[in-house]
């Protein structure tokens, strides 16, 4: 099977879907001639032309709002937010509009929109090129939210998002773009939204995570295997809807759960995952649910020692996993 990096998988998903369906188009800042600041839309402009690969003004609310209007007509827009840190001007359009269009019109109108936004730190981006905004949108009914960790999932989930009849926020971790490679089939496939994936089978502890931290957990699990600790790793892949069955099954597998993510700890996805487990199987647990997430400071600083201190890494994850295993 061909090997691709995470960024190329995202690019391929868009290319193939644009070829498959004339209604699919891309809009965003620098997505056209330049092919995106990270290169995610490279090659689309020469292949599909400026009417379907639209360089927009610096105008995030319009990028979302115009995409919503086109989606209501029946188009399938993919709107790129250059960094998720910059998508806050579009929050009104996303939460008041896209998320509520089907519900408020009693199913008369719908909004098949994808908003792609790079999340996360570790690239020396400072406060405003490093944030994880999942918790801003999480808990907004009407939105779907995905955050893949591997090239296979990124391509399959992006295709599923484009084909979905409702708005999907596609959070791609920018640190994964070139760092993570993996097998990606040439033939068409999708990864269904709302389905988590066991990335590693294990028997002693369960780690529930998504995005970049999946890789930290996998690395830590390899190291811990040498210490005789067997870790079971569930990649949520979809944040909304959460795959409740998979969360409970993974928790049951070991009875010891670490919930791990790069977004802030307070009010993060992990809080909801922990609550689901506590509500439904508290007495089956062998240890209190543990959470490891970013500190509750406004965002990541740029100075290397500060960034390093803020960011999670395989060592920090390993320490938490070992602590849980020894509980």
């Amino acid at each position: 099977m061909p090997v691709s990096n995470y960024l190329d998988a995202i690019n391929a998903a868009m290319f193939e879907e644009m070829k498959r369906d004339d209604n699919v188009f891309v809009l965003g800042e620098d997505v056209g001639v330049k092919g995106g600041v990270f290169g995610a839309t490279k090659g689309l402009y020469p292949a599909f032309g400026e009417e379907r690969v639209i360089d927009t003004p610096l105008s995030e609310s319009a990028i979302a709002g115009v995409a919503i209007g086109a989606a209501m007509y029946g188009m399938k827009p993919i709107a790129e937010m250059q960094y998720s840190d910059f998508m806050l001007p579009a929050v009104n359009q996303i939460i008041s509009e896209a998320a509520k269009i089907r519900y408020r019109s009693n199913n008369d109108w719908n909004c098949p929109l994808v908003i792609r936004a790079p999340i996360g730190g570790g690239i020396h981006g400072g406060l405003y090129h490093s944030q994880c905004p999942e918790s801003i949108f999480f808990g907004t009914p009407g939105l779907k939210i995905v955050a893949p960790s591997t090239p296979y999932d990124a391509k399959g989930l992006l295709k599923a998002a484009i084909r979905d009849e409702d708005p999907v926020l596609f959070f791609e971790h920018k640190k994964c773009y070139r760092m993570i490679s993996g097998e990606v089939p040439e033939e068409d496939y999708i990864v269904p939204i709302g389905v988590a994936d066991v990335k590693r089978e294990g028997t002693d502890i369960t780690v529930i995570t998504y995005g970049l931290t999946v890789h930290f957990a996998l690395k830590a699990a390899d190291d811990l295997a040498k210490e005789g600790i067997s870790a079971h790793i569930l990649d949520l892949r979809s944040l909304q809807p959460l795959d409740t069955d998979a969360i409970l099954a993974a928790a049951r597998k070991t009875g010891k759960v670490l919930v791990l993510h790069e977004d802030n700890k307070t009010g993060g996805i992990g809080a909801e995952v922990a609550a689901i487990i506590a509500e439904q199987m508290l007495y089956e647990l062998d240890a209190p649910i543990m959470r490891l997430a970013s500190e509750d400071v406004p965002a990541m600083p740029i100075s290397p020692p500060l960034e390093k201190q803020f960011m999670l890494n395989p060592e920090k994850v390993k320490d938490a996993m070992r602590k849980l295993a020894l509980y």
Binding site: G65, I68, G69, M72, Y73, M75, Q93
Partner: peptide, 11 residues
């Protein structure tokens, strides 16, 4: 207003 622009873009 941006929605109207989006419909016009679709046109």
């Amino acid at each position: 207003v941006p929605h109207a622009v989006g419909l016009a873009l679709a046109a």
